[in-house]
Structures are given as structure tokens and as C-alpha cells.
């Protein structure tokens, strides 16, 4: 039995305007297995963010097939895609994407508010505290995002991404807006999470952090370049 969390076959994405067709992704194949830590790098415009948005069902491919844990998610309705995002995918954005009007607690709890089966307040509290503990932010639950440092905000974003025990954590340039110390802390958290079994797919420009992944992929003009794995290098 396959343990693939993500399977993409021949995925293409074309952006069209009246005057122009842009091929962002050209026939991409990708498999990410349970427990993998994959980094995707590449120059600007290579299709990294597009790929991540397709992986996260934030957008839909123009062609190709996409499976999450064996489920065909290529042609879902918007609401079906939302449900998959809610329970199977965790997002970490470069700019944190925390909601300014919500406290740390409420930001982290946000995905649970969208469960079909509404959890109790106690269940939410317990799970939020677990996730905040995993990223080391526990005492600051009643603060608002703008009262925290960038590193702290990104760790809260990671806690929010973990809240639903997702099948995969999609991480987009997690250190892009952070100083090096904070960036290291965030990467440590991600490493630890992977060590505990969380599957991670990360887009990054930074070769240092790309090297921390078990599998390194490089995109160029919408297609993967074959790179040796860390195991192969070792």
C-alpha cells in the first residue's frame, strides 16, 4: 500500500490574459510521502508559489491529476476544496497571514471554527494549547499579532497550520520576513515537527534552509530539475 500523501501527475497551469498566455507549470509530476520534508527552490517566476497554491488547493490546475492521500482533488468544488484544506492541509505563509483583529488564541483556533462537526470550547482550548506548546508561544494567547515579533508571529502561524493535524504542512518562504535569529528558530520548529512525523513541503529561496529538507527539488520555467537527495549526497 502506497504511503503517498501527495501525488501530482502531469500538472500544468496556464494563466491567461487577453494579450498573453503564461505557462507557470508544465507537466509537473510530484510525489510526497508520509513523513517527507521536501524543499522546493528556484528563481523568481519559476512557478514555486503557483505549485504551492495548487498543492494547497488554493487554485486549480489547468490540466493534470492531483491526489491527496489517494483522493482525487483535481476537480473539486470550491467548498469541497475548502473542506480538504481545513482538515488535511496546513499553511504557513511568508507574511504570516494572521488576522489582526483576532487574538493569538483565536488565530490559532480559526480552522477549528470551520469544522463541519463543531468542537466544544474545551476541545478547542486543549488543541490550541497543544499547538502553541509545540511552537513555544503558550503564555501569549491573549495578545494580538501586532504585539508580537515577526518570529513569534510565524510560530503562531505554524501552530495554526498544525491545529487540524494536517496530512501535510505547506510552507511558503517561512523565513522571508524574519531576521536570521528568528528564522533559525522557525526552521528549528519545522525540523522538530518533521522529526515528530509531520510531512512538510517548503518553498524557499535560502539554500541553507533548503538543505535542511530530506528531498530538495528545484523548479525552473515550470518544470523540476533533478537534484541529488541528501541521502544520495551522504
Amino acid at each position: 500500500m502506497s504511503n503517498a500523501v501527495i501525488t501530482m501527475r502531469n500538472i500544468s497551469k496556464i494563466f491567461e490574459t487577453e494579450a498573453l498566455q503564461t505557462h507557470a507549470l508544465n507537466g509537473v509530476d510530484l510525489t510526497i510521502n508520509q513523513g517527507d520534508y521536501v524543499s522546493i527552490s528556484g528563481p523568481s517566476g519559476s512557478g514555486k508559489s503557483t505549485l504551492l497554491s495548487l498543492l494547497g488547493l488554493l487554485d486549480f490546475p489547468t490540466s493534470g491529476d492531483y491526489f491527496i492521500e489517494g483522493l482525487d482533488v483535481t476537480k473539486l468544488s470550491l467548498d469541497e476544496a475548502a473542506e480538504i484544506r481545513n482538515v488535511k492541509i496546513g499553511f504557513v505563509f511568508q507574511s504570516f497571514n494572521l488576522i489582526d483583529d483576532l487574538t493569538v488564541f483565536d488565530n490559532v483556533a480559526l480552522p477549528m471554527r470551520y469544522y463541519d462537526k463543531k468542537p466544544t470550547a474545551n476541545q478547542i482550548k486543549q488543541r490550541v494549547n497543544e499547538c502553541l506548546a509545540m511552537v513555544g508561544i503558550t503564555p501569549r494567547v491573549s495578545h494580538y499579532p501586532n504585539q508580537l515579533s515577526g518570529g513569534q508571529q510565524q510560530r503562531i502561524a505554524i501552530a495554526r497550520a498544525l491545529i487540524a493535524k494536517p496530512a501535510i504542512l505547506l510552507v511558503d518562504e517561512p523565513t522571508g520576513n524574519l531576521d536570521s535569529k528568528s528564522a533559525d528558530q522557525v526552521m528549528d520548529v519545522l525540523g522538530e515537527l518533521n522529526h515528530q512525523g509531520t510531512t512538510i513541503c517548503m518553498v524557499t529561496h535560502d539554500p541553507r534552509y533548503a538543505d535542511m529538507a530530506k528531498t530538495k527539488l528545484c523548479l525552473l520555467d515550470g518544470t523540476f530539475l533533478k537534484l541529488p537527495s541528501n541521502k544520495e549526497i551522504a
Partner: peptide, 16 residues
């Protein structure tokens, strides 16, 4: 817009 996108990203449906 950005907040709505974030909420959609973490699983909010249209009705939500």
C-alpha cells in the same frame, strides 16, 4: 480581501 483569503486557506467555506 487578504483576511478572507487567509480564512479560505485555512478551510472557511463560502457560507462561513
Amino acid at each position: 480581501k487578504f483576511e478572507l483569503g487567509t480564512r479560505m486557506a485555512v478551510g472557511a467555506k463560502r457560507a462561513d
